[in-house]
């Protein structure tokens, strides 16, 4: 039954992603006026209901395991999707820019798909890790990832709008995507938010190591290094923007590079390198 409900959640996310992307594919004003409101409504309600389901599942696992569920890919990716949706919903609440969902919801869907495919697996969490440090550390890191993914979405939106403006003829036909200035500015804010959260997450993580002696700490841990690379990419972007006027197009490309770095840190390191941060 629980498995079935999780499948339902997965399908809701799939539907929300598809409808979000469809809404972006509309190019004529006629279609926009006739069907977009319906599509957007479905997509948005799908996102809301999917998010509620996901929250319930995480709560359920928490109760079952007796500690914050973050032991296996199942928990981890579900929480990843949860964080992405949360940040997206907050951004929509503040800016009314639903178009962002077309870029971030598919990422959330893939995360849940991974979670679903591992659904029967569980792993035991070592005793010393069961505490609120785990909760604080992972929540901060995942919210940072979600903010970076939102920045990535804004970067793609920027590039799409720019292409339309350069293509000229149908530059004005679609009013879904915001202006270049808006995409760029919001992407930048998301980046700053992400850097702050990531910095805090890393600090919490390193303080945590002071409290656990049983697990040996290695500075050369693959995840740690990869995280620093990611952090550096975003900090460099902020610096270049402040001092050299690197915004707009370049910022959009950096957001895409940063997104790849986030994926490498989160998934890649686990699959191909050895680390104490693995979910297995």
């Amino acid at each position: 039954m629980i498995n079935f409900l999780f499948l339902v959640t997965l399908l809701i996310y799939l539907a929300a992603s598809i409808f979000q992307t469809l809404s972006l594919a509309i190019s004529s004003r006629t279609e926009a006026a006739v069907i977009r409101p319906t599509i957007e409504r479905i997509a948005f309600w799908g996102t809301g209901i999917g998010f509620a389901f996901l929250t319930l599942f995480i709560a359920l696992w928490w109760l079952q395991q007796g500690h914050f569920p973050m032991t296996h890919w199942t928990d981890s990716t579900a929480f990843f999707a949860w964080a992405i949706t949360l940040i997206y919903l907050i951004i929509v609440r503040l800016t009314h820019l639903r178009a962002l969902g077309s870029f971030v919801m598919p990422v959330a869907f893939i995360a849940i798909l991974i979670s679903y495919s591992f659904a029967t697996h569980t792993a035991a969490l070592p005793e010393p890790l069961r505490n609120y440090w785990l909760l604080a550390h992972t929540t901060l890191i995942f919210l940072a990832y979600a903010a970076f993914i939102a920045a990535f979405g804004f970067g793609l939106m920027y590039l799409m709008t720019e292409r339309k403006i350069r293509k000229k003829t149908d530059a004005l036909l679609d009013n879904l995507l915001p202006s270049l200035g808006t995409s760029d500015g919001l992407g930048y804010r998301c980046t700053i938010l992400g850097v702050i959260l990531l910095t805090m997450g890393v600090i919490v993580g390193s303080l945590w190591t002071q409290y656990i002696r049983d697990v040996p700490w290695r500075w050369l841990d693959a995840k740690v290094i990869s995280t620093f690379v990611t952090w550096f990419i975003y900090v460099a972007q902020i610096g270049l923007r402040q001092f050299w006027g690197w915004h707009g197009r370049r910022a959009a490309y950096t957001a895409i590079i940063g997104f790849v770095a986030v994926l490498c840190t989160y998934v890649g390191v686990d699959l191909f390198l050895d680390s104490m941060h693995t979910y297995r």
């Binding site: 403006i165 004005l172 202006s179 270049l180 200035g181 500015g185």
Partner: peptide, 19 residues
């Protein structure tokens, strides 16, 4: 909807560029 004069088209384009 949509600008049907050159000058309004210019205004709408400007709005697509600047926030």
């Amino acid at each position: 909807a949509g600008a049907v004069s050159i000058s309004y088209a210019a205004v709408e384009l400007a709005k697509k560029i600047f926030n």
